[in-house]
């Protein structure tokens, strides 16, 4: 994968994530963690090679079908990407609105999820008024409200204290128990070590280690 005419930022990467698995992607800054996630959540196309999602080769999926694939993927962006003009409640409801669901069918679900992530008292608040940790949890709530098959999180603990990091990790573990496939990009070594989850380690755009596969990871480090 490359950006414009720049050199490839990812190459010779080969792995497969099984449904219901939980992995971390680690590596130094600039190793290609975010780029790998972008390719999976369909923000960027691979310049060569093959990316398959839900059993479909992305390069052969018609453009009109891509939005439906994206709706099956929840993303927690590194910089949150919350819509500042919308309330916390509206931000979380966004994926459901886009999916065409009726407000009456999901308003209680949104409220419940916001309470679950500890934002029950901040439903009307707009993102600029929230703390870093609150934004992080709001971004996570938005990513999971549509019960995605896959959850991708880019440095989800990058802006929070250790206590909040553990709380967020517990949230991901809980989601994983409910069947969501999870891939987290992080350079938080303590978090990764404490999780006991398999790791994809990137170095200069190459997958150099598979970590502890625990039977969930398939493929070879390139």
């Amino acid at each position: 994968m490359r950006y414009g005419r720049a050199p490839e930022v990812l190459n010779n990467i080969n792995f497969q994530l099984m449904p219901g698995s939980f992995h971390f992607v680690t590596g130094a800054s600039g190793a290609g963690k975010s780029s790998l996630l972008k390719m999976i959540y369909l923000a960027h196309r691979a310049s060569r090679g093959r990316v398959s999602l839900f059993g479909r080769d992305i390069s052969t999926v018609p453009g009109r079908d891509l939005p439906f694939l994206r709706r099956r993927i929840g993303v927690v962006f590194q910089e949150f990407r919350l819509l500042d003009h919308l309330s916390a409640f509206d931000n979380v409801a966004l994926p459901l609105r886009i999916a065409g669901k009726k407000a009456n069918d999901y308003r209680q679900d949104v409220a419940e999820l916001l309470r679950w992530v500890g934002l029950g008292e901040r439903m009307q608040a707009e993102p600029p008024t929230l703390s870093g940790g609150e934004k992080q949890r709001l971004a996570i709530a938005r990513a999971v409200i549509n019960r995605p098959d896959v959850l991708l999180a880019d440095e989800p603990t990058g802006n929070v204290d250790p206590a909040m990091s553990l709380r967020i990790l517990r949230l991901f573990v809980e989601l994983n128990r409910m069947g969501t496939t999870i891939l987290i990009a992080s350079h938080d070594e303590d978090l990764v070590a404490n999780s006991g989850r398999p790791v994809l380690h990137l170095d200069s755009g190459r997958l150099i280690a598979l970590g502890d596969a625990q039977g969930n990871l398939h493929g070879e480090a390139g």
Partner: peptide
């Protein structure tokens, strides 16, 4: 909740 009535919530403008 704190003056926010979930039952009365209406989606805000996306833009």
């Amino acid at each position: 909740l704190m003056g926010f009535d979930v039952a009365r919530w209406r989606p805000g403008p996306l833009l």
